[in-house]
Nucleic acid binder design. Structure first.
Lengths: 223, 223
DNA sequence: CGTTGTACTGAACGCTCGTTTAGCATATTG
DNA sequence: CAATATGCTAAACGAGCGTTCAGTACAACG
């Protein structure tokens, strides 16, 4: 039932059409009739297979989450991805990234769970990187992993603005032409290597916004 | 018609109610009847004042954009904000941040325009910072400003996940208790000061994802 | 063969949507 | 004072919604 095998049954066509429609217009903005039309079936059949619009949405959530998990696992194994989203930009004909972007905002138990997994993976990736000396240690490992993940996912959600601003579509398939996202990757890597602010500036901001009574500001003591 | 003066006319109540409903449930997920009920008026009056649901949405877009512009201007003037979103987290009783988060994903001409302004402001802020030595120079000033803005806005859009992950609600009013966002600010400032990856790691990633034939990678001795 | 079950359609149901309309108060104006 | 405009409601409209249902085509199985 996953993504391999014979994936052209009517139920699969409905599910794929629903994912595309949901991704483009949101759940509330998509009618069952529109999904049925896109899948080339009658509205009744949608209900027949999935029970209700809400159950269809859940099925889509699970399916997309499943797809992303697969690809994500592969990317983690190969170990080359500092940006999770780079891995699942396009999967087959299904706009998984766009769907995820919508669902991240609308909220859904399955996708929330997926986000937690992504952060956990990032945490694992960062921990390994710190051990092997590829990543600088932090005083707030967990929070840093969460923030880096959120920034990546946030950029994914705002992909249309990013496209408009710097001409890079991060929902597009990167594996074809890895250099196509240069305008995004180059400055991002710059920030990720050297930072942005000078030390004096950061010190000022820390004083303004950071509560130093928590385990903080004590300077690199690797807990 | 802006935000001061006598702001309790029925039209203003409808507009504020609409902003709140749109922010919480999205435009497609909000009915005119729900807005009318929240504002304590009849559905007909909503149309009477705004013409149609779509025109009401435009009015909300413009109003929220106007509010954010005001606050943003003040924050830029005071010069202390590296994170634009910090400025407009809550304005009066209107959930401007949440509304913006929704509209950023749904897409709207007025908010798109606002994003461009935010990036332009960030560009200006960064340029000044580079001159005064508070911010490290970049090979891609414009793209960096865009990406930093998108990351901030993206975190705003995903505020619910951020809240769940690290317990910080970045749509909440920060001016009351500037230290309340420590769990977000501390690691963010860490990244913004020292970066994340060590130089060798970045070099590998640059080779993989960055097209060095563009004005890039040429002058990397400012380490 | 007949029976049974599954995939599927087309029409219809009840409901909610955005919007329209008629009408009623309360100001404003001449 | 009558006349007119404004703010507003209640009721209703047609369209479209999610969903139901009766019925048809067809494959599997005895």
């Amino acid at each position: 039932m996953r993504s391999g095998q014979e994936d052209r049954t009517a139920a699969a066509r409905i599910r794929d059409a629903a994912i595309t429609e949901f991704a483009n217009n949101g759940v509330a903005g998509t009618s069952i009739r529109a999904i049925a039309a896109a899948a080339g079936v009658s509205p009744g059949l949608v209900i027949h297979h999935f029970g209700s619009k809400d159950e269809l949405r859940v099925a889509c959530d699970e399916f997309v989450a499943g797809i992303i998990r697969e690809v994500k696992g592969g990317a983690m194994a190969s170990g080359g991805a500092f940006d999770v989203t780079a891995a699942f930009r396009t999967v087959g004909e299904i706009p998984a990234a766009k769907y995820l972007a919508r669902t991240l905002v609308d909220g859904s138990p399955h996708v929330t769970e997926l986000v937690d997994e992504i952060v956990a993976d990032a945490m694992k990736y960062v921990a390994t990187g710190v051990e092997t000396g590829m990543i600088k240690p932090s005083n707030h490992e967990w929070e840093r992993a969460a923030i880096l993940s959120i920034w990546s996912l946030g950029a994914l959600v705002l992909h249309e603005h990013l496209k408009r601003l710097i001409g890079v579509d991060i929902t597009a398939d990167l594996s074809q032409d890895p250099k196509s996202a240069t305008a995004y990757m180059a400055p991002a890597l710059e920030i990720y290597s050297e930072g942005v602010f000078t030390e004096t500036t950061v010190q000022l901001m820390r004083e303004a916004f950071v509560d130093s009574t928590t385990t903080d500001n004590l300077k690199k003591e690797a807990t």
